[in-house]
Nucleic acid binder design. Structure first.
Length: 266
DNA sequence: AGTACCACCTGACGGC
DNA sequence: TGCCGTCAGGTGGTAC
């Protein structure tokens, strides 16, 4: 679930369900999802406050508290939020529960517990601390090109690297490279300018389209590679067999016919 | 600096 | 049915 489009959906979900609600209490079901603060500290930080303005940077979601601090959510590989009306049953793998004054609850759900919940004073400082690059949907074209020119990693690794640009994960990295017709092992700084511009526009287009489709991969166009990310699948564009390899320790799918490696480095 | 590999954690799935 | 390896949309640390 949780790449940029998914986190954007979580942001909208949080806003539409919980914005402005006052927090009565917090129940931590598994302290393993807390980072940098204890259960007691989290309670003190949240109790009595309203959930205010939300922000997203890459795959991180922030919600402002009355005292100016921010709750931070990261969803790992499988996390998400579930808003519960009075009487609604708590979902499985609910690791944290925010109780509102009106009896509704917000559950942070994750099976694998690779994400976390925390509280920070300053979002910008947090972003800097984490070494996150600009958000993939906010970065300007000139800034993006400048970043690409100084990034010597393979394209797949670079898109995945949150310090290069924040928000792209394994699935969307494959999609962006497929639509740009860039081989995942090409090095970013070796792309020519038109390829870099194309990469920028495709990145925006893929992420925005995914958001418009509710980040629901079942609704993604068949001409995308995402519906064809399985072994022996056929390229929706040319019919060649989709190749599967491992880059940056992540499974990578691409079309060896459409995404030419060329000299890889030239 | 870039890359490979491991660890964290839990569940699903295929093979035997 | 049960055990085992492998894999899964993320991040962080280590070692070369």
């Amino acid at each position: 679930m949780p790449e940029l489009p998914d986190v954007e959906m979580q942001k909208r979900y949080l806003e539409s369900t919980s914005l402005g609600m006052q927090i009565a209490d917090v129940e931590v079901r598994d302290t393993g999802i807390l980072r940098g603060l204890s259960e007691a500290e989290l309670k003190v930080a949240l109790k009595g406050s309203h959930l205010g303005q939300t922000r997203r940077h890459g795959k991180y979601l922030f919600a402002k508290l009355d005292n100016g601090n921010w709750v931070v959510f990261h969803f790992g590989m499988d996390g998400g939020l579930a808003f519960l009306n009075v009487g609604d049953k708590e979902p499985a793998y609910s690791r944290l529960l925010v109780w509102f004054e009106n009896g509704c609850r917000l559950s942070y759900v994750t099976i694998r517990k690779l994400g976390f919940v925390s509280v920070v004073n300053d979002v910008e400082a947090f972003i800097k601390e984490k070494g996150l690059g600009p958000d993939a949907l906010s970065v300007s074209c000139p800034d993006f090109l400048a970043i690409l020119r100084r990034t010597r990693t393979m394209a797949k690794a670079g898109l995945l690297d949150q310090s290069v640009v924040a928000g792209i994960g394994n699935i969307y990295a494959d999609e962006i490279l497929f639509q740009t017709k860039v081989h995942p092992r090409r090095h970013l700084n070796r792309l020519d300018k038109s390829e870099m511009v194309n990469l920028f526009q495709t990145m925006r287009d893929v992420l925005q389209t995914a958001i418009e489709l509710g980040a629901d991969s079942r609704r993604f166009p068949d001409c995308w590679i995402i519906p064809h990310r399985y072994e022996h699948a056929r390229c929706p564009r040319c019919g060649s067999e989709i190749a599967r390899t491992r880059i940056s320790n992540r499974t990578t799918y691409y079309c060896p016919a459409c995404q030419k490696s060329g000299q890889l480095n030239s």
